[in-house]
Design a protein around this nucleic acid. Structure first.
Lengths: 225, 225
DNA sequence: AATATCGCATGATGAATATCATACGAAAAC
DNA sequence: GTTTTCGTATGATATTCATCATGCGATATT
């Protein structure tokens, strides 16, 4: 039966209307477990720690099964990265759109550059966790990074009520990524806190002026040097 | 003779006044070559690419010789990181102290977040190259990172004529590290340039005000778009 | 009920890696 | 000139890894 459909529609479309059997449901569940496990490994140990044996082990499977689920390791990592970024950024922006922009940005940078995020790797930012490993990685991965980064920037600028200011969101993201990387890298805990505080204040010190009667289009534009 | 001295002073001090022979001079040269090679590998391929065989090969030696020069791989990497950071930061701050602070910062971020640095890995910033690999690495490495980072921050704040504002230097460093990581990671070249531009402008907008009568809190910041 | 399918486990393969042991040959010490 | 030292090369060992081939057993199909 499935075979007949496959003959008519071709393999890929047949997949779409694939009958949900006990087997296929279980497989989908396991696949999800694999992606989740990979996204955790990714955040805690980076791409390096996300080996097939580790990930499949975390998911309760043995290593050889992997290629029944994914084309390649890169395909899994790309998917895991996207999952991790979506998960993390969702948490960052929660409740932010209800606040005035200054408070919103403050909450955002506190969530990113705070003690919780500093040592909480399992649910932490994949951009910090994978960092340099991505730009030396496969196109697949870089594509995933790019899409995730843009998605985060859009979410953030949307939540801040500045739909079009993707650039501001990108810059804030850069401070958070750089600052957290630095803070995690140093041995001295006090120094780590200092780095995070310096970054937070750098962002907060000079937020776009709050909304006054003046339209923001007409605000005085700082001349570029 | 050396043996006698060694007996009197102990091994480590004997090292200090070690006679310079043809052999020891050659060894020192090779050691330097190894560190340089490691610092290059580090910047181009990260810690992962800086394998002993690779590095020793670059230096014109075979892999087994390594342990005649260094205690461990970690010891080499720590030294290579420090070397790379000193080299790179020296280039960044060249000529900056002659400029007024705004122009100085502008030059600094242009050097860091510009097209040259984007694709020039061999002499690029090790903080971007090693990134997340360091904070998951050995204490030795993290110590090297910490010291190098502080050295850079001191140099930068010194060159900017703000000796005491290490925090400002740290924040600028964070933007550069985060921004360059992001720019290198994405596939789209135009997007990479946009990220770097957004980060540069973010920094320049946020500079402490020139010393005018006005408090810097009251300045209106340019909103983009 | 008989047969076909397929998710998963086991295990093989080959490549890359850090580290160490041994050996050679030139330089240094005597 | 003989002996000792030591920088380097060669090669061994043990580990880790991605990928793939094979086979079993539960599930789906007929």
């Amino acid at each position: 039966m499935t075979l007949v459909i496959r003959k008519i529609l071709g393999a890929s479309q047949a997949e779409e209307i694939h009958k949900v059997t006990r087997r296929s449901a279980r497989k989908a569940t396991m696949r999800r477990k694999i992606v989740d496990a990979a996204s955790r490994r990714l955040r805690v140990q980076g791409l390096e720690g996300a080996t097939i044996a580790n990930v499949l082990g975390d998911a309760g499977l043995t290593h050889g099964t992997f290629y029944a689920h994914f084309e390649s390791k890169e395909a899994l990592l790309a998917e895991a990265f996207i999952t991790a970024a979506a998960d993390t950024s969702e948490r960052w922006i929660k409740g932010i759109s209800d606040l005035p922009i200054e408070r919103g940005v403050e909450l955002l940078v506190n969530r990113n550059l705070g003690t919780a995020h500093l040592r909480n790797l399992r649910t932490g930012c994949p951009f910090v966790a994978a960092g340099a490993e991505v730009w030396r990685g496969s196109s697949e991965l870089r594509e995933a990074y790019e899409q995730s980064m843009l998605a985060v920037a859009r979410k953030v600028s949307g939540a801040l009520g500045k739909q079009n200011d993707i650039d501001l969101a990108l810059a804030i993201h850069a401070v958070c990524v750089g600052g957290l990387t630095m803070a995690r890298s140093v041995l001295d805990e006090k120094l780590a806190l200092r780095i995070m505080r310096a970054c937070r204040e750098f962002v907060l010190e000079r937020l776009p002026a709050k909304k006054t009667g003046r339209s923001h289009r007409s605000r005085i534009i700082r001349s570029r040097r």
